[in-house]
Nucleic acid binder design. Sequence first.
DNA 1: GCCAACGTTGGC
DNA 2: GCCAACGTTGGC
Length: 152
Amino acid sequence: MTEEKFWLMKSEPDAYSIDSLKNDGVTLWDGIRNYQARNFMRDMKKGDQVFFYHSNCKPPGIVGLMEVVDLNIIDPTQFDKQSKYFDSKSKPENPRWDCVKVKFISKSKEILSLPELKILFSEDDLLVVKKGNRLSILPVKNDVAKILLKKI
DNA sequence: GCCAACGTTGGC
DNA sequence: GCCAACGTTGGC
């Protein structure tokens, strides 16, 4: 039996938006430099669905849906000296950072904003509504995801 | 621009 | 291993 898994990934729309992904079709979710977030990506499986969240904008919120299509990809930006994500401590023979590839599924007609999410869900239901939560990748509970899917 | 909530770093 | 200082995220 296949258990559906759901996640939420944040991106600042100035850096990479849902429109960028719609245009690209697929993208590598690289540049993650937080171990907990990286480990969540390692827990992902092909076919998992991911809510795309715009952060650091007004208003912040969920703007679309994507799907995991590839796993365990070494993040190329860690070895790129030109990249802001360059990590001098990571060696090619033992890469520290990896990521997943995602594909565009849909863009919401309207943003499901953080204030709305706070009305719908408690901190325990959906971690993104928790004050001060800085994790850019979060798991989403199955029953919460079912509700979200109807609203985006 | 402010600040809360962390994660990371480095001295000891 | 502790912890203070510092840096980052991201809402407001």
